[in-house]
């Protein structure tokens, strides 16, 4: 019991400052969407919202939120798995600065 209490570091990545989170690109096949809104509801980063336009079948496909800020797509691909219509998928954008 004589031990010193351990210093509390707190939750978070140790090398968070050096790492950048990935940036995802969202691809949408607009005519396949049936407007179930599962991608909008269950996106871990909340980057999607229902749009006001109609597709050919009369459903509202998703669109990106207007103010990105902190909420940016990280290309996790959850929407691609959760979409029952095979209408949305993500790709991770390659960093242009690193390529140079």
């Amino acid at each position: 019991m004589g031990k010193k209490p351990m210093k509390f570091i707190g939750r978070g990545l140790v090398d968070k400052g050096d790492k950048k989170s990935a940036v995802g690109k969202i691809y949408l096949i607009i005519e396949r969407c049936k407007g179930c809104n599962l991608c909008i509801e269950f996106c871990p980063k909340d980057v999607l919202k229902e749009s006001s336009v109609f597709n050919k079948k009369g459903y509202h496909p998703p669109e990106l939120i207007e103010v990105p800020g902190e909420k940016m797509c990280v290309g996790c691909g959850y929407c691609s798995l959760i979409c029952p219509e095979f209408a949305i998928y993500t790709e991770i954008e390659e960093d242009e600065k690193e390529a140079e």
């Binding site: 969202i26 949408l28 990106l64």
Partner: peptide, 10 residues
Amino acid sequence: RCMYMAESHP
């Protein structure tokens, strides 16, 4: 305004 439009899925 939206993301990219695609024709096919992986």
